[in-house]
């Protein structure tokens, strides 16, 4: 199994409050890693370390590493610009957040940010990423209509396409289906499983069934600590830690 990234003994504090405590885990290439745990356990905080989203708000401190392979580049290091990190690692948010622009412009944005001007290249990328996000058939005839006119599920697939257009090394999904109905959720899960062929995925989810269904690896977090990491089949059927078992059997959470 090839590692795409690894979190090494990561501590994270916000306004002097420790939120992550000595978290370590591997992220395997072309696999889906799910982060699960009760609200406030730090799973979203951990996810947002991967693209240095916390840097936008200040008063933060990283201590430890997230190494990105093959170069073993520590993306949390002070010498690395957060913008460089975000160019390598894409993100899809809890609530679909398309820009109030056309479908076309939404997906083109990541490329425009990188200075791409050639229209034929952008057109090609847009078709390609919309197909990957299984949205092409629904929107190919109205790329210039507003993205906010799409349904919630379509908007979220558009956000996935937007993140894919720049070919990220890793795609972060922050509870991507929590704002969606069951049919759209099933759609997204199917899509995510398909996507792992081309991209490494780290996904935060509240939905344990979703983690069991889609993730290859699952890590259970509790109170800012990584309690257990393993293959999803093992975590959900035969957890080693008592806390993990209590959580997945619904005894707390």
């Amino acid at each position: 199994m090839v590692k795409k990234a690894e979190v090494v003994n990561l501590n994270f504090s916000y306004t002097d409050k420790r939120i992550l405590n000595g978290v370590s885990l591997p992220i395997y290439e072309n696999r889906i890693t799910a982060l699960i745990g009760p609200s406030g356990c730090g799973k979203t905080t951990l996810l947002r370390c991967f693209n240095r989203m916390h840097d936008l708000y200040g008063a933060i401190q990283y201590d430890g590493k997230i190494n990105l392979f093959p170069d073993e580049l520590n993306i949390l290091s002070d010498e690395i610009d957060p913008i460089e990190v975000r160019m390598k690692i894409g993100m899809v948010f809890q609530k679909p957040n398309p820009f109030p622009k056309s479908i076309y412009e939404n997906i083109a944005y990541g490329l425009r940010v990188r200075g791409v001007k050639k229209k034929s290249f952008i057109d090609e990328k847009i078709e390609d990423s919309l197909k990957k996000a299984s949205l092409w058939n629904e929107v190919s005839d109205r790329l210039n209509s507003s993205a906010t006119s799409l349904s919630g599920g379509q908007q979220q697939r558009l956000c996935i396409a937007r993140a894919l257009a720049t070919e990220p090394d890793i795609l972060l999904l922050d509870e991507p289906t929590s704002a969606l109905d069951p049919i759209s959720t099933a759609h997204i899960e199917e899509l995510v499983t398909e996507l792992k062929k081309s991209v490494t995925i780290v996904m935060v989810t509240h939905n344990l069934h979703q983690a069991a269904r889609t993730a290859d690896y699952t890590s259970f977090m509790y109170l800012g600590e990584m309690i257990e990491f393993g293959e999803s089949s093992q975590i959900f059927t035969n957890p080693k830690e008592q806390k993990t078992e209590n959580y997945i059997t619904g005894r707390f959470g």
Partner: peptide, 21 residues
Amino acid sequence: PSHIREASYSLGATKWQTIHN
């Protein structure tokens, strides 16, 4: 809303790009 800003930053945009676009 802050999630619109975050969408822009998450794609690698700089502060000025986010403000301007």
